[in-house]
Design a protein around this nucleic acid. Structure first.
Length: 508
DNA sequence: TTCCGACAGTGGGGTCGCAAT
DNA sequence: ATTGCGACCCCACTATCGGAA
């Protein structure tokens, strides 16, 4: 199949707003792709590469050669070149990689170049990712989408699942099973503004588990072999020896467990997330780091124990198997209750202990991987500040032509100026985007670049955030974590905004 | 007919490893 | 030694479609 065929379908999908329409376009193409190229087509059309990452980002995509006139590149040709690009590493590799990227683009028409640019830049934005592609694979293969979804849960990679479905339908999909050593798509949590709302969603009684601010881990053990995977199914094994040892010490030969690793201080309170991230992100000199910043692990689910798959069992039954497998110090603290007041007390307790919050879990829900359903609901405390808008950046995609991303500042009473604490684009409705674009242009003042409009510091905005973290980037040495706009405060002036001192007092 | 669950899009801060400067 | 880039960790929120109620 030619690349141009895929490009045309991608463009049609992007033009079609209706999901069913997108699915129709995708399924039509999947119906005519050959078995050798199905995986490539599915990957490209869901914005991914069969190679996953190839070490080429936006910077490596500058200064590309001009287009060819005739579209002759096949999917196989392009795939082979991408594999070659990925395989290049070592001294002088950047020049070699650049030459190969050059070669790739020189063989494409301008239409194909535009597509590859977006695909490699991770910005395909055609309104179809895994969720839509699952339906397209189902339609093209004749298999129920539930079977496709189930296979994806167990395999974690849709192009492989889709190719199998197209080649062999339901029987081939049924061959995907939970395998020790191969990661499963992890179950994710939705969110609720408070404990009571979360209990209402999950249905009482529900289980409340501590939410630890660390790294999600899926641990697989088969005999003396242990492997650990992250939320995105990357292998983390070599970076977390403590976890490997803990799993090897369990009284089972065969298990798949879900949990969180976190760096705790000697007094048992958690380090800031940055400390855990730095520790789990390092693969050099892990033994030395381990002595300085040991990791603890807390498990909260069991997907398989001694040959028995537990995914379809209700939460309560999985908990029983977990408790029978893992010693109490390695279990995530939890409480089962239907009493809102008791739940609120538990929430206050976990926050006081320095942790992130709670995850509220329905007792009956199976391990529904990959979807943020109502089975698990997270609850976190929320801070707010009144900050001053210092500048705004032009948006992209559906926010094109609107000033979108706000630069937020706290008042500095000593200098009379403002100290930038970070940016946010979250919480803005279309109406608010239109309003602020107009307002900011009227307030424009100071240096204005291609992307940024600086404004007179007059508008006060109420911002919610999860915490204040140490920052190497911003002048105050601190930044807001997960900042989002709640509302503008036309009733407040810049002199009424919160000060740097207030923010500093919130830093961990 | 209305409601609501699932999805895609729009980006945020921080850290590491690696290659180039 | 320092810097820039790419890849991953953590993530919140709104708009929209289409099936459920």
């Amino acid at each position: 199949m030619l690349l141009i065929d895929v490009v045309r379908v991608s463009e049609a999908v992007a033009r079609t707003p209706a999901r069913l329409g997108k699915i129709g376009h995708l399924a039509e193409l999947l119906g005519r792709v050959g078995p050798g190229e199905a995986e490539i087509a599915i990957a490209y059309l869901s914005g991914e590469l069969p190679q996953r990452q190839i070490g080429v980002g936006w910077r490596s995509l500058q200064d590309l050669p001009g287009p060819k006139l005739a579209a002759t590149a096949t999917l196989t040709d392009v795939d082979a070149l991408l594999t070659k690009i990925k395989s290049v590493s070592g001294q002088g590799s950047q020049a070699a990689r650049k030459a190969l990227v050059h070669e790739l683009f020189a063989g494409l028409t301008s239409q194909e170049q535009a597509f590859m640019l977006k695909l490699l830049g991770g910005e395909l934005r055609q309104g179809a990712l895994d969720g839509v592609m699952i339906e397209a694979v189902a339609k093209a293969s004749g298999a129920p989408s539930a079977d496709v979804r189930r296979a994806l849960t167990l395999r974690g990679w849709l192009p492989a699942v889709g190719a199998a479905a197209l080649a062999g339908g339901v029987p081939r999909l049924k061959e995907f099973r939970l395998e020790v050593g191969r990661p499963v798509s992890p179950m994710l949590a939705g969110s609720a503004p408070g404990v009571a709302a979360a209990l209402a969603k999950a249905g009482a009684p529900a289980a409340l588990e501590w939410k630890l601010d660390g790294i999600r881990v899926q641990a697989h053990r088969s005999g003396s072999e242990v492997r650990v995977f992250t939320r995105t199914l990357d292998d983390l094994t070599s970076r977390v020896p403590e976890l490997v040892e803990a799993v090897l010490a369990l009284p089972v030969e065969d298990a798949v467990l879900d949990g969180e690793v976190i760096a705790l201080r000697p007094d048992g309170r958690p380090h800031p997330f940055q400390v855990t991230a730095a520790r789990t992100g390092s693969k050099i000199d892990v033994d030395r780091l381990r002595a300085e910043t040991p990791l603890s692990v807390f498990f909260f689910d069991a997907l398989r124990v001694e040959g028995a798959d537990l995914l379809d069992l209700p939460y309560a039954a999985r908990q029983e198997r977990l408790a029978a497998t893992v010693p109490p110090p390695l279990l995530t603290p939890r409480l089962v209750t239907d009493d809102v007041a008791e739940a609120e007390r538990f929430f206050a307790e976990v926050v006081k202990a320095g942790h992130e919050g709670l995850v509220v879990k329905a007792l009956s829900s199976p391990y529904a991987a990959g979807r943020r359903g109502a089975g698990w609901i997270k609850v976190k405390p929320r801070h707010t500040l009144d900050l001053v808008v210092l500048a705004a950046e032009w948006g992209h995609g559906r926010r094109e032509g609107r000033l979108s991303n706000l630069h937020l500042g706290a008042r500095d009473p000593e200098t009379g100026g403002f100290v930038m604490l970070g940016k946010t684009f979250k919480g803005l409705t279309d109406e608010l985007l239109a309003w602020q674009t107009e307002r900011f242009l009227a307030l424009a003042d100071g240096p204005t670049t291609e992307w940024t409009v600086h404004v007179r510091p007059e508008l006060v905005v109420e911002v919610a955030f999860d915490g204040v973290q140490r920052s190497p980037r911003y002048p105050g040495g601190m930044a807001l974590r997960f900042a989002r706009v709640l509302r503008y405060r036309p009733d407040k002036r810049a002199e009424d905004a919160d000060t740097v001192g207030t923010v500093r007092a919130l830093m961990i």
